[in-house]
Amino acid sequence: MKARVTVTLKNGILDPQGKAIEGALKSLGVGGIASVRQGKVFDIELDGAADKAKAEAALKDAADKLLANTVIENYRVEVLG
């Protein structure tokens, strides 16, 4: 089973990297960019039988324990099947 955990900065947390990317896009002349915030994507392959609820629980555990720092980051878990 494949899954994806997406980690993003919480609103209001300063994101200097996102700002730099935003600046670079603007200087490249890419139109219509209002703002950029960057984050991380983890593509995870899960072992065992396809129990979606169990998989989600394991991924949440992974995100809480390691993948995200919940002081500054939010995460979203998706089981892709």
């Binding site: 947390i13 300063l14 200097p16 990297q17 720092n69 002081v71 500054i72």
Partner: peptide, 16 residues
């Protein structure tokens, strides 16, 4: 900070 012994977090330097 990551271990929870201290609060907060160290982010990228403001001027990168």
């Amino acid at each position: 900070c990551e271990s929870g012994l201290l609060p907060g977090v160290l982010m990228r330097n403001a001027r990168l």
